[in-house]
């Protein structure tokens, strides 16, 4: 279980004044749950993710993973970013094996594990390729495999498919659901794409800001795989959309 307990984050802005990126956010995410954070830029969704990752420190409040406070980055909470996700000087195999290499897992074993996860994301053939030789979609698949290889408790994804074309994005969303259904990691997924959130999430957290706070939490209990044309799906998208519009005061 992942708990955010009244978390506030302030940064020093460019002009020296403190900027509140996140204000008093509380959220509990169950094990195996897939939660999407949506909102427009500046709403604090990425800050929330970075705080969970331990890449930033909360100014107030605390974050607990299974009751243990988050004090810094750890292989328990892997991040998949939108860009520059892979190490360009390492082959695909050695990228995926990176986390295990840090843990001191012997070469033959870590390469075997890396091959397993590369097969899981459908890249068994590309193990010896370098990132620059792969398409954007393939690179993100490798990044997912790399994050899974250390068997983290939580997978944090910061608009991981945001830079991909629509078709590739759709394929990867389906792949992510398939992998998640096999592996059942806790996933926190940041996106500004309403449809993406509705397609993936068990719960959608709608955020507003600055300063960032939670506007609403919507349960999405539609069975998977979800049909983007089904009335229930469209109704869900509509609800998220309405929440965002309420947030931004357009109504």
């Amino acid at each position: 279980m992942l708990e955010l307990d009244r978390v506030t984050k302030r940064f020093n802005g460019a002009d020296g004044r403190a900027v509140t990126a996140l204000s008093d956010v509380s959220l509990t995410i169950a094990r195996h749950e897939m939660v999407c954070l949506v909102g427009r830029s500046g709403c604090g969704k990425t800050t929330t993710l970075r705080l969970i990752a331990g890449l930033e420190r909360a100014t107030h409040g605390r974050i607990l993973l299974n009751g243990v406070p988050v004090e810094g980055p750890s292989a328990q909470r892997c991040v998949v970013f939108q860009r520059y996700t892979l190490f360009p000087w390492r082959s695909v195999l050695r990228n995926v094996a990176f986390g295990l290499e840090i843990q001191g897992v012997p070469k033959s074993k870590r390469h075997a594990i890396a091959r397993h996860y590369l097969a899981l994301v459908g890249l068994a053939e590309q193990v010896h390729a370098f990132p620059a030789q792969l398409s954007g979609g393939m690179q993100q698949r490798v990044a997912v495999a790399r994050a899974l290889a250390t068997d983290p408790q939580v997978l944090l994804m910061d608009e991981p498919f945001g830079a991909l074309d629509a078709q590739t994005r759709t394929v990867l969303q389906q792949e992510l659901i398939r992998i998640w259904q096999e592996d059942r990691k806790t996933i926190v997924f940041v996106t500004h794409d309403i449809q993406e959130a509705a397609l993936l999430a068990d719960r959608v957290v709608v955020m507003q800001g600055p300063p960032g706070r939670i506007q609403a939490i919507l349960n999405c209990d539609l069975p998977r795989p979800r049909d983007k044309g089904a009335p229930a799906f469209l109704a869900l998208c509509d609800r998220i959309h309405t929440m965002l519009e309420v947030v931004n005061g357009w109504n």
Binding site: A53, G54, L55, G72, P73, S74, A75, R77, C78, V79, F81, R83, Y84, T85, F87, F98, G99, I102, Q103, A143, R146, A147, T150, L156
Partner: peptide, 14 residues
């Protein structure tokens, strides 16, 4: 890129 260092840190490197 910041992402290289941050990816490495969340994979346990320091």
């Amino acid at each position: 890129p910041r992402e290289y260092i941050e990816s490495a840190r969340t994979l346990g490197a320091r």
